[in-house]
Nucleic acid binder design. Structure first.
Length: 460
RNA sequence: UGGGAAGUGGCUUAAUUGGAAAAGCAAGUGGCUGUUAACCACAAGAUUGCAGGUUCGAGCCCUGCCUUCCCAGCCA
C-alpha cells in the first residue's frame, strides 16, 4: 500500500477504511486500554492523532515509543470521539521503523531559538521551523511562477567567478593550491599555477552575468546562493544567502521600481493566501502584529522619494540621529528606520543616490551628481531590495571604472555589451532571507535559512 | 570590526549584602485516565563556559580567554 501524506487526511471529507501513514512521534499519551500517538510527517503543521489499542500484538513496544521515533501506521481514518480534532486514525497495525534514543533533545515545550540553532539538523522537526521551511519552499516556487508569467527567463549564473570585483562586498577566495605551501612568485602566491590559472572567488552577485543575458534574452532573473566574506555580526546578515536578481533590457529606473514593488506585494499576498496554517503560527506565536503589517505591505502604494527629499525629511524631523544626515552621506539604518517605520509607516523606495557612495555600474543621472539607484525599505527589516538602472554608455562607464581604479581589461566582456547594441537596462537584488523575515516576523536571519553560515560558524 | 549584555542539571530560569546551589519542564520508575504541551507520586540528575586572582568564604567581585545574543558599520 502506498503511504498517504498527513496533510491529505486533514483535507478528507469522509472516513477512509484502509490507509497507510508514516511519520515521527511528537508525543504519546497512554490510556488504560490504548495509547494516543501524535504523529507528524512534515507534510503539514498539524499532527494526526493515532489510537493504538492494547489488542495490538506489539502493544508493549508501542507503549515504549519515545518522542522522535519513526512509525508506519495502517488503519482507518475515523471521526474523533474526543474534542480538539475532527479526524483521527484507528490503527490496525503500528510498525515501528526505528526508536529515537532517550537523549532526543526536542521536548514537548518551547525551546529558545538560540538552543535550536545548536541543533540545526533537528530543528525542522519543531512546529515553528517546520512551518518556516515549508514557507521558504512555497515562496521559492512563487518566485519562479511570478517571473515565468511575466515572460522572464530563469538564468543560472556561475557561483565561481574570476571577477575580483562584482560591485558588492568582500569575497571568499577559492583555490586548489596547497594553502600551507603555495607556489610562490616574487614573494607572492602564484595563482597562474592555480586551477583556473588566476584568482577565483565565490560570487557576491550574479548581476554582471545577468546583464549579459538580459541583453540577449530580454528579461531574465537569477535565484541562487551568494557569498559575502564580511565580518558582519547582525541579525540581518549571513555569509551565504540567497538572492533574487531580475535584469531587464529596455527598462529604466521607474520600470525597475515598478517591478520591485510588484514582486514584494505579489509574494506577500501569495504567502497570506497559500501558507495559511503555517502563517497562523507566526501570527500567533512570533509576531502578533504580523497580519496587519503584511496586509499593509501587500495593498498600500509604496512611497517613492528621491534621496535629496529623504535627506530633507530626516533633517526636518528634528530627530537626533547618531550619524549626521546630509547629501553625500549614505542613509544609515537609523535613517532608513525613521523613513519607513515612523514617517511613512509603509514601504519606501528611495532613489537617485549620490554617485560617490554607489558602485561603478549604476547609471549617472543628468545632474552628474546622482546615479539611478533605488532601495526598497520595509518596516522591521530595512533594506530588502537594492537596484539600479545600469550605465549603458561606454564612455561614461569607462570613466566610472577609472574613478574606481578598476582594470578595464578584466571586464572586456562587460564593456563589449556597451559596444554592440547597448540599450538602457535595469535590475535589482532582492534578499530572499530578508523577504522571509518580513513575511514571518522572524527576527534573525539564522532562523529562516536551513543551515546558517555566519562568522565563526559553519557546523552542519 | 567597534559598543553593550549574558553564560547555573538535557531545556527554561531562580539564588536578597560575598555565607548550605533551588524550581518547573524533559528523560527514568510506578499509578490513574478518550487523552489534547494530560494528571498524581517517587527517585535521579550540577567541576555554576575555561584559566587565574581577591577573600576566612566566590554562581555573585577583579583580570584574561572562549561562546552566544543585541546594537552599529559593511549590505541583500
Amino acid at each position: 500500500m502506498k503511504r498517504t501524506k498527513i496533510f491529505k487526511l486533514f483535507k478528507s471529507d469522509a472516513p477512509v477504511d484502509h490507509m497507510l501513514i508514516k511519520g515521527w512521534v511528537r508525543t504519546r499519551r497512554d490510556s488504560k486500554t490504548f495509547s494516543f500517538i501524535e504523529l507528524n510527517d512534515g507534510s503539514c503543521l498539524k499532527n494526526i492523532q493515532v489510537i493504538a489499542e492494547s489488542l495490538l500484538d506489539n502493544y508493549e513496544e508501542i507503549r515504549n515509543l519515545t518522542t522522535g521515533s519513526a512509525v508506519a501506521v495502517t488503519g482507518a481514518l475515523i471521526e474523533s470521539q474526543g474534542k480538539g480534532q475532527k479526524w483521527e486514525v484507528r490503527a490496525d497495525k503500528v510498525a515501528i521503523i526505528s526508536f529515537a534514543s532517550e537523549s532526543y533533545p526536542l521536548q514537548k515545550k518551547r525551546h529558545s531559538d538560540e538552543f535550536l540553532r545548536t541543533i540545526a539538523h533537528l530543528r525542522p522537526r519543531t512546529n515553528k521551523y517546520g512551518a518556516a521551511f515549508r514557507i521558504r519552499s512555497e515562496v521559492s516556487y512563487a518566485i519562479h511562477q511570478f517571473f515565468r508569467e511575466k515572460g522572464f527567463r530563469y538564468l543560472h549564473t556561475p557561483i565561481l567567478t574570476g571577477s575580483d570585483c562584482e560591485g558588492a562586498g568582500e569575497m571568499f577566495r577559492v583555490t586548489a593550491l596547497d594553502i600551507d605551501d603555495p607556489p610562490k612568485k616574487e614573494g607572492k602566491t602564484d595563482h597562474s599555477q592555480d586551477f583556473f590559472g588566476k584568482v577565483a572567488n565565490l560570487t557576491v552577485s550574479g548581476q554582471l552575468s545577468a546583464e549579459m543575458f538580459a541583453l540577449a534574452l530580454g528579461d531574465v532573473y537569477t535565484f541562487g546562493p551568494t557569498f559575502r566574506a564580511e565580518n558582519s555580526n547582525t541579525r540581518r546578515h549571513a555569509a551565504e544567502f540567497w538572492m533574487v536578481e531580475p535584469e531587464m533590457a529596455f527598462c529604466d529606473l521607474e520600470g525597475n521600481m515598478d517591478l520591485g514593488e510588484e514582486i514584494v506585494k505579489h509574494l506577500t499576498r501569495f504567502v497570506m493566501e497559500e501558507c495559511g496554517e503555517d502563517m497562523e503560527l507566526f501570527a500567533k506565536f512570533v509576531d502578533k502584529a504580523l497580519m496587519p503589517r503584511l496586509e499593509n505591505i501587500a495593498s498600500s502604494e509604496y512611497v517613492r522619494v528621491p534621496y535629496r527629499e529623504a535627506v530633507d525629511i530626516l533633517v526636518k524631523s528634528g530627530k537626533k540621529f547618531e550619524y549626521p544626515v546630509g547629501f553625500g552621506k549614505d542613509l544609515q539604518t537609523e535613517h532608513e528606520r525613521h523613513l519607513t517605520e515612523d514617517h511613512f509607516k509603509k514601504p519606501v523606495i528611495v532613489y537617485d543616490y549620490p554617485k560617490s557612495i554607489k558602485p561603478f555600474y549604476m547609471r549617472v543621472n543628468d545632474d552628474h551628481e546622482t546615479v539611478a539607484a533605488m532601495d526598497v525599505l520595509v518596516p522591521g527589516v530595512g533594506e530588502i531590495i537594492g537596484g539600479s538602472q545600469r550605465e549603458e554608455r561606454l564612455d561614461v562607464l569607462q570613466a566610472r571604472m577609472g574613478e574606481f581604479g578598476m582594470p578595464q581589461e578584466n571586464y572586456w566582456w562587460y564593456l563589449d555589451t556597451r559596444r554592440f547594441g547597448t540599450v538602457p537596462h535595469s535590475g535589482f537584488g532582492l534578499g530572499f532571507e530578508r523577504l522571509l523575515m518580513l513575511m514571518t516576523g522572524v527576527r534573525n536571519i539564522r532562523d529562516v535559512i536551513p543551515f546558517p553560515r555566519t562568522p565563526g560558524n559553519i557546523e552542519f
